[in-house]
Amino acid sequence: MKAAAFAYARATSVVNALELLAAHGDKAKVLSGGQSLMPAMNLRLLSPDILVDIGGLAELRGIAVRGDVLVVGALTRHVDLLGSPEIALHAPLLRDAVAHVAHPAIRNRGTIGGSLAHADPASELPACVLALDATIVVRGPAGERRIAATEFFKGIYETALSPDELLVAVEVPVAGQGVAFFFQEYARRHGDYAIVGLAACAVVAAGSFSDLRLGFFAVGDRPVLAAAAGKLINASVTPALLAEATAALADELDPQEDQQATAAMRRHLAAVLLRRCAAALLARPELEKGATR
């Protein structure tokens, strides 16, 4: 459990980091919080020739509100999301989600940019940025690209980033009137990656959803923005309609089997989450029971 030998460069600016990445191509790896990268290297699952450490780049740090957009720098740590008043005010979903990410020691180092770039399908934050309709800001040799979160995740550990690009920020629309959030995940232990989880963002008016974005995670090779949500928008949510939506959700998801759960169990838990989400957001506990035998 020792990493293979590698070279190390501490980037002095974003431009310098991009130069280093351009020089070394896919033999280089960006080092951010190191909480996913270092374990993989110690297990020799990854053996990059060089690490480009972006940890010192103040320009990638910080949380700021610009108009109706909340800009979160790539180096913002999980612990910062937990404690930030801006996040609590404008995107509390991120705060609620990050409380489920690992443990304090890891949250003290892990970053939002690292989490999104790593794109673990069981991760919380990727599903959140889908639900929040966020934009991922990326810089490369050719300049800046802005990628909709829905276009960013491509598969297990795969994203729209190319090896010579750096994820620099995430832009989240600030929460407006009537916006409500729901976050829940099922894991056998606190801090573990979820068996199945849901990050949801809704606009509730007069007892029904005028918008509903359901970001499911650990249900496939990438986070899923469930189309089944459409069935519940601008409709009177009855147990029957909810059952219809959960059935549609089960069809839509293509979960994988692993040691924690079969695909069937994941579909079942996703349905439970959807019912609990609807019940919570509409403040109608009776919806939660659904089709319980």
């Binding site: 056998r188 801090g191 990656y193």
Partner: peptide, 29 residues
């Protein structure tokens, strides 16, 4: 009772030989 199990596949491969997949009891639970 709730967590620990060495999971082998039918070819005799231990498939969870790490602290992420082999769940030890932790204080939170």
């Amino acid at each position: 009772a709730l967590f620990e199990k060495c999971v082998y596949d039918e070819r005799g491969q231990l498939t969870n030989a790490n602290m992420a997949d082999y769940l030890v009891p932790m204080s939170g639970e």
